[in-house]
Design a protein around this nucleic acid. Structure first.
Length: 645
RNA sequence: GCCCCGAUAGCUCAAUGGAUAGAGUACCGGCCUCCGGAGCCGGUGAUCCAGGUUCGAAUCCUGGUCGGGGUACCA
């Protein structure tokens, strides 16, 4: 019998599919066997049956379900009757080694698997696949660009930047695990009129000495001061705009200051990204696309698409029922649309992308619709692969008020401050729960769990809903949270450590020969740019005894909680795929909570380490499979998975 | 005005047109002779309104209500 991991073949993301659980249900050997029999019996295509297979809402109803609505149409009989007659025929269908029975529940035909065989099949499949479980090669040969984070220069990295940064980083990992060649781009906001404001502030009040002392916050303060004063004094705003214009014209003195701003910003960003575990393949400012943008405008004019209007150069988009896309302002300075157009063309040329994702907040949706429309008008076939992955706004709770986050208004929390506070909160908990850890270990764990709490919070809801940042709630580590997942993983690791220790003492397990863990074995197909499936940071190896052929015995894992866990483990590849299709990391977050909670239920109901040697081995195999999937899921979200906490 | 997004339990969030709408938190009650209690088990509690499509709607369509965002030279 093929293992679940080997038999699983995912569909291409974006491939239109219908039916609940379609992939989860259609690619493991149990579902496959059912689909084949039902297809032959009903004369309905195999693919159709696969797409219709479901998982019953409650375990006591069954393990697989076939809704008979489609068969009702084909056979012109009520679905209830079809379900009943199929249930009666089931014992003769020759599936008794895999399934205990089938029962009709209304229009549904529900199947009960042979618990032990099913659980062992899934668990052993995962142990064979290791960290590649849930990965696939559907994206092989296709390049996907993910643009995310993209903060403006000369401002501190703050919690408002977390949405794009964490969603983008997670989507990158998810897509890479499906075999896509992912190019992660940080499109720095280093150009535009805000640079004029910053330069003006510097020219009026700035000093290198103060910059050395105050760092990026000093630059930000200057910027805020200019903004405040130019609200009262329109002449000042005009001066700032003129300064950006001069920057575009290549003023050497301004360029030197601007470069200094970029340098300071990069230093600041590096620390933030390192703490969050976020990486990029290409960090390139908008400024890079200033000149190509001007060339774009010339080309658009040649093609007759760009025209002058109210003193600006625009592309009219009336046929798309969109406002015109402005390319050149009436002062002849460029605008972000110009640079985005040039960047897209450059990326198409350089990478030949299948898709290009822009992880940018929802306020820019009109902007992207305009830019995409212009590129379509220009006749680029790849324009169809441009996707704005938008996300909702985050406001901040200040006392009784809910305010928009803004640098200028001062309603923002610098990331550094937030991460430090989070780590301090966790540190207290570690101190209480695990005082025997060493000093260094405590600090490492506090950081990992603090960061995990933050990342999970951002990735556990659908992107497009707005949210409120509450300083107190944000630091809660109980309940459905990143720390809960990390804790569950650490428990699993702890049990496996004890299992390994006692196994070595009793010589019951073949002594390890291979030093390589499943984690470092082989990278997933096409995962070249981000490296192996799991980096050492977000997923530490070593939970499974290296080289030990840990197996689950088909006759031993028959407790209801064991079946529940196995079912959930089986669903993992479908969850990864669904997250990619929807560009929604929260699909994986939700999955992980289910898995962790069901696994905790199992630990409560069943003792893993016992006198019964073979039962212990089978249960340890289950624990190892869960640990593998938890680690992989945490990795895909970008959350560290410490083995102790 | 027009366009986009959202509305599910007191609060924060899930739910692929499918069966009795699922968690956490808060509140009430249980569980440590405990492999990690940052946990487990139970209880209370919800689909904004009105139509429509469908065998079947939180989900799709139409019209409202409320909230957020955008709407020509910011990003």
């Amino acid at each position: 019998m093929p293992s679940a991991a080997v038999a699983y073949r995912a569909c291409d993301p974006g491939f239109k599919t219908t039916g609940r659980n379609r992939d989860a249900m259609c690619r493991d050997p149990f579902a496959e066997a059912l689909a084949e029999k039902l297809s032959a019996r009903l004369g309905i295509g195999l693919e159709t049956i696969r797409g219709a297979m479901e998982r019953p809402p409650k375990p006591e109803m069954g393990d697989y379900a076939f809704p008979c609505f489609m068969a009702a149409k084909a056979l012109r009989a009520p679905p209830q009757k079809i379900a009943a007659s199929l249930a009666a025929e089931f014992p003769a269908m020759g599936l008794s080694d895999m399934f205990e029975r089938a029962v009709a529940t209304g229009p549904y035909l529900n199947f009960f698997v042979n618990k032990g065989r099913f659980a062992a099949s899934i668990v052993n499949g995962i142990l064979d696949a290791g960290e590649r479980y849930g990965s696939s090669d559907v994206g092989a040969g296709k390049t996907v660009i993910v643009e995310y984070s993209s903060p403006n220069i000369a401002k501190p990295f703050h919690v408002g930047h977390l949405g794009t940064t964490l969603i983008g980083a997670s989507l990158s990992r998810i897509l890479a695990s499906l075999g896509y060649n992912v190019v992660r781009i940080n499109h720095l906001g280093d150009w535009g009129v805000q640079c004029g404001f910053q330069l003006l502030g510097w020219r009026r009040w700035g000093s290198e000495e103060a910059l050395r002392r105050g760092g990026i916050q000093y630059l930000c303060d200057l910027y805020v001061r200019v903004c405040r004063e130019s609200e009262k004094d329109p002449a000042m705003e005009a001066e700032a705009r003129a300064m950006f214009k001069r920057l575009e014209e290549g003023d050497a003195e301004l360029l030197a200051v601007w470069r200094r701003f970029t340098e300071v910003t990069m230093n600041e960003l590096e620390g933030s990204y390192r703490r969050l575990g976020v990486e990029f393949d290409l960090v390139r400012g908008e400024s890079y696309y200033h000149k190509p943008g001007l060339e774009m405008i010339a080309e658009l004019k040649r093609k007759g698409l760009a025209e002058e209007s109210e003193g600006a150069v625009v592309v009219k988009l009336d046929d798309e029922r969109l406002p015109p896309c402005i390319l050149l302002k009436s002062d002849e300075a460029t605008i972000y649309a110009t640079r985005d157009l040039a960047a897209a063309v450059d990326r198409a040329k350089t990478f030949g992308f299948h898709k290009c994702l822009y992880v940018v907040d929802v306020r820019q949706s009109l902007h992207f619709r305009q830019v995409f429309a212009v590129l379509k008008k220009m006749g680029f076939p790849w324009a169809a692969g441009l996707i704005h992955v938008s996300f909702g706004l985050m406001r901040i709770q200040e006392g009784d008020q809910v305010l928009a986050m803004s640098t200028r208004g001062g309603q923002m929390v610098p990331l550094k401050e937030f991460l430090d506070r989070m780590a301090a909160v966790v540190r207290c908990i570690v101190e209480e729960k695990n005082p025997e850890l060493g000093e260094h270990e405590k600090a490492t764990v506090a950081e990992a769990v603090g960061v995990g709490a933050i990342i999970f919070q951002w990735l556990s809801k659908r992107r497009n809903s707005d949210s409120v940042f509450d300083r107190h709630k944000a630091t809660d580590t109980r309940g459905d949270s990143g720390p809960y997942l990390q804790y569950t993983h650490a428990r699993a690791c702890s049990i496996l450590r004890k299992f390994r220790a006692s196994a070595e003492r009793s010589d019951a397990v073949v002594t390890a020969t291979a030093e390589s863990s499943p984690l470092t074995g082989s990278a997933p197909a096409g995962g070249s740019s981000p490296g192996p499936a799991c980096s050492s940071r977000a997923a530490a190896p070593g939970a499974v005894p290296p080289g030990v052929p840990l197996r689950a015995d088909p006759s031993l894992l028959s407790h209801p909680t064991e079946l529940k866990v196995a079912m959930r483990l089986r669903d993992f590849p479908a969850a990864v795929l669904s997250a990619a299709e929807q560009y929604e990391p929260c699909v994986i977050s939700s999955y992980m909570l289910e898995l962790a909670s069901e696994f905790s239920g199992f630990l409560d109901a069943c003792r893993v380490l016992s006198q019964d040697e073979s039962l212990t081995r089978s249960r340890a195999a289950l624990v190892a499979a869960v640990a593998t999937v938890l680690r992989k899921g945490l990795y895909l979200l970008g959350i560290p998975a410490p083995e102790k906490m």
